[in-house]
Design a protein around this nucleic acid. Structure first.
Length: 285
DNA sequence: CGCTGCTGCAAACTTACTTCA
DNA sequence: GTTGAAGTAAGTTTGCAGCAG
């Protein structure tokens, strides 16, 4: 088993999640900030993720599990409860449907491959406006609709951060507050990073195991060589210095300072090629 | 030019709520 | 019906960068 095969090799070419994704349409200031942050991050964690540059984790975004079930609308806006218009609007309005008053909307959703249609009673009376954003509201769990999640996901795949214009457009398209879109992206980035960290961890673990095995093997080899040398020592002692000559081939290629190459005990063995993640050039960039 | 206070943004951390087994 | 874990929306804290004074 070599270090340059299998898990380690694959594992050592990592790039953090969406890092390399183009941040489209970003304000130069934002781009600069992001760039600096990325540099800061890589500097900060270089000692932890030596040469690990994980490739964009496509599987991550593609397998990101969307919540398949939506809360019962009646739970969200229970009868008799004070109505939180903003949250209801956000949680219940399909991005493709126009905002409706006191309406029942049908929401299609997939569940285990089957499409089921659910009727939701929605009590909404006004369009969410950003002016209302600052109003504090008691925390109620909002569940985004499947359409909203899909659109947000698609948008995230294009750019992991939003500029104000994009945020505004998305919010408008999804009928959400800008703050909600912003929060969703923040949480999405956090989830991406968390997942990436888990992947990194796994790879480091594998790498560690490989190195441990390699270390054991080398120690064993060293012990064997030592015992071999000890066993041969008396033979050396008995010979006069003049009789200790090298064979022509050894003499020709030998380096005076290189003990191993002149040693008659040297074992013809391919030099192990270590992939030291801590010295990998990609870590420097 | 350097310092300071303000502002905005993103990350990190935390809390609260929902869903499901 | 209850409970604990997992998922996630949203709140809070912190750090950094840009800018004006």
């Amino acid at each position: 088993m070599g270090l340059d095969d299998g898990a380690c090799d694959a594992g050592l070419v990592l790039a953090l999640g969406s890092q390399d994704k183009p941040e489209n349409h970003l304000h130069p200031d934002q781009e600069k900030k992001i760039k600096i942050r990325k540099e800061t991050f890589s500097l900060k964690y270089d000692h932890l993720f030596p040469s690990l540059t994980l490739g964009p984790s496509d599987h991550e975004t593609s397998t990101y599990k969307l919540s398949s079930k939506m809360p019962d609308a009646e739970k969200v806006c229970g009868v008799g409860e004070p109505v939180d218009l903003q949250k209801q609007a956000a949680s219940s309005v399909s991005p493709v449907s126009s905002f409706s008053n006191s309406s029942s909307i049908k929401r299609e959703r997939e569940s285990g491959g089957e499409e089921e249609i659910e009727v939701e009673k929605v009590m909404i009376s006004s369009r969410v406006s950003d002016e209302d954003e600052d109003q504090a509201s008691p925390r109620k769990k909002l569940r985004l609709t499947k359409e909203q999640s899909t659109i947000l996901e698609d948008s995230f795949k294009e750019h992991a951060t939003l500029n104000p214009k994009q945020k505004q457009d998305l919010a408008k398209q999804l009928n959400l507050r800008q703050r909600q879109v912003e929060v969703w992206f923040q949480n999405r980035r956090a989830r991406t990073k968390l997942k990436q960290t888990e992947v990194d961890c796994e790879l480091l673990k594998k790498c560690c195991e490989t190195l441990t095995e390699e270390n054991k093997r080398l120690e064993k080899e060293l012990q064997e060589l030592k015992s071999l040398k000890l066993a041969a020592a008396p033979f050396y002692m008995q010979l006069p210095a003049a009789t200790l000559t090298l064979c022509p081939s050894c003499e020709k290629g030998s380096n005076p300072g290189d003990v191993s190459s002149t040693s008659p005990f040297s074992i013809a063995k391919p030099k192990p090629q270590f992939h030291n993640p801590y010295n990998h050039p990609s870590a420097a960039s």
